[in-house]
């Protein structure tokens, strides 16, 4: 047993746990202060219900099955929309990053479309699809498309040309060059795109659900507003926050798994 062993062992066990707790201190403190402020009457419950009331409302909705159903509907819409928009964006990013012809053909058009705020299309989308599922999927896919397209394109364009030359010298075929040099080189940038896209995904979905839907979290919040159920409204907002955090954490885990070679991911 060397000294180094005895020092590094407890540290390697302790660090992740403390790290995991630290990030929750501020959210928990906010909830605690909020609870105290509500109970003492400093904040009227008509403006903001106490956290305990929100939890209670959540419990009731959970028992009725309404909460799970609405979360599931929203989650499903978000994932399908993300998959559709993300894969189309990824495909265009690849095509335009690898082929000059494809870039000349489509990039200008895509840049023009990009400058239209996709939420401005909501009236048009409702006219096209009604308040059908496809309306929400279309909007989410459109919103997710651009960050993934732009970052995939950027990632591929900025792969070190010296590495590409090296790959060619060592006789890599186009397929190998893509698999071993270009794609791994573009991956960090693609992940930036994914994380941007996840943010846009929730934003788009919530807006779409509050305006035109008959189920989902946004719809639940709007219904609660109709009946002045402020605790359910606050509950929905908190669930958005949690889901957003969950999506971000998932992409971080994926990032850490695939980018373990990157110096930025080695020290943690």
């Amino acid at each position: 047993m060397s000294l180094i062993d005895s020092i590094s062992l407890p540290r390697s066990i302790r660090l992740p746990r403390v790290d995991g707790l630290i990030q929750w201190i501020v959210p928990l403190a906010i909830i605690a202060i909020w609870q105290v402020a509500s109970v003492t009457g400093f904040v009227p419950t008509r403006v903001l219900p106490a956290p305990s009331d929100v939890v209670l409302a959540g419990w009731k909705l959970l028992l009725s099955g309404e909460l799970v159903r609405n979360i599931w509907v929203s989650f499903w819409r978000a994932s399908i929309g993300f998959l559709i928009g993300g894969s189309i964006g990824f495909a265009f990013g690849l095509a335009n990053g690898l082929s000059q012809l494809s870039a000349k053909l489509t990039d200008t058009t895509l840049q023009m479309v990009r400058n239209v705020p996709h939420l401005a299309l909501i009236p048009l989308v409702i006219l096209w699809f009604g308040i059908d599922e496809s309306a929400k999927l279309f909007l989410v896919a459109l919103g997710v498309f651009f960050p993934i397209y732009l970052n995939t394109l950027h990632g591929i364009r900025t792969v070190d040309p010296q590495l590409i030359e090296m790959g060619r010298i060592y006789g890599m075929t186009d397929g190998e060059l893509f698999r071993r040099v270009i794609f791994p080189g573009a991956l960090p940038s693609i992940f930036v795109g994914i994380r941007f896209a996840l943010g846009i995904m929730w934003l788009t979905l919530i807006v779409a659900e509050t305006i035109a839907a008959s189920s989902g979290l946004g719809y639940m919040a709007m219904q609660a507003r109709e009946f002045m159920l402020i605790d359910v409204v606050v509950l929905s907002i908190l669930i958005y926050a949690l889901l957003g955090k969950l999506a971000d954490s998932a992409s971080r885990v994926l990032e850490r798994l695939t980018l373990s070679w990157h110096p930025a991911f080695q020290k943690r």
Binding site: Q162, E165, M166, R180, L259
Partner: peptide, 24 residues
């Protein structure tokens, strides 16, 4: 074969895999 001033190693491949690239 050529060797450059920069090592031009693939950062996402481990040392052994980088050497294997040279097998063409």
């Amino acid at each position: 074969r050529v060797m450059f001033q920069e090592p031009r190693l693939l950062p996402w491949a481990r040392v052994l895999a980088n050497v294997e690239v040279g097998l063409g």
